[in-house]
């Protein structure tokens, strides 16, 4: 794995840019993909957002000043792209972001790229009900094992604030699962 500083220098040098970018894509594609997929749920949507994320990274790499870590910057772009995508999709379909999520959840039940059981489906439903930012915090922490310190840099929020958002999210999910189990 090429060291981040070396990679950034190569990315900002015209002659090495392409090779360095290929290295970057191969190092981060899976991590960024799962971050995005957890937000948009559908594979094709996640593919679109991931490609746009990398294109944005490629186009803006020269303005990357190194004030944060490269991967922090990329995760932030992926997070913003996911939320922008959901908003734009809602706007295109002339509906709310909640309706877009409802629709994505309904599709999940018949999605060939979802192999979760009933419990996982219910879990996804509970996560989808969270407000966007809480959802981002919860999925990045729970599924992708970011530490609160890393998340604090990516999302530009205090560690304390993140922790409390995360716990609120866990509480809401637990409540949702409990209520739905009772009604089953």
């Amino acid at each position: 794995m090429v060291e981040e500083k070396v990679l950034v220098t190569a990315l900002q040098t015209e002659a090495d840019k392409e090779a360095a970018f290929r290295e970057l894509v191969s190092q981060y594609k899976e991590r960024l993909y799962w971050q995005i997929r957890n937000m948009v749920l559908d594979h094709d949507d996640a593919d679109d957002v991931l490609q746009n994320t990398f294109i944005k990274i490629f186009r803006n790499i020269n303005s990357f000043k190194g004030e944060s870590k490269l991967h922090t910057w990329m995760y932030r772009i992926a997070a913003n792209e996911s939320i922008t995508f959901l908003n734009n999709k809602a706007k295109r379909n002339n509906t709310s972001i909640e309706a877009v999520k409802d629709n994505a959840l309904r599709n999940l039940e018949s999605d060939v790229y979802f192999e979760g059981d009933a419990i996982q489906l219910q879990f996804q439903k509970a996560i989808a009900l969270l407000p966007e930012r809480q959802r981002l915090i919860f999925t990045m922490k729970y599924f992708e094992d970011h530490t609160f310190e890393q998340l604090s840099q990516i999302l530009d929020t205090s560690v304390g604030g993140l922790k409390s958002s995360y716990h609120i999210a866990v509480k809401k999910i637990t409540q949702f699962i409990k209520t739905n189990n009772e009604t089953l």
């Binding site: 997929r37 957890n38 594979h43 059981d117 637990t174």
Partner: peptide, 12 residues
């Protein structure tokens, strides 16, 4: 509470 959550997303 988290102990009861599924460990994986189920996405492929």
């Amino acid at each position: 509470d988290e102990i009861n959550f599924p460990p994986r997303t189920g996405f492929k």
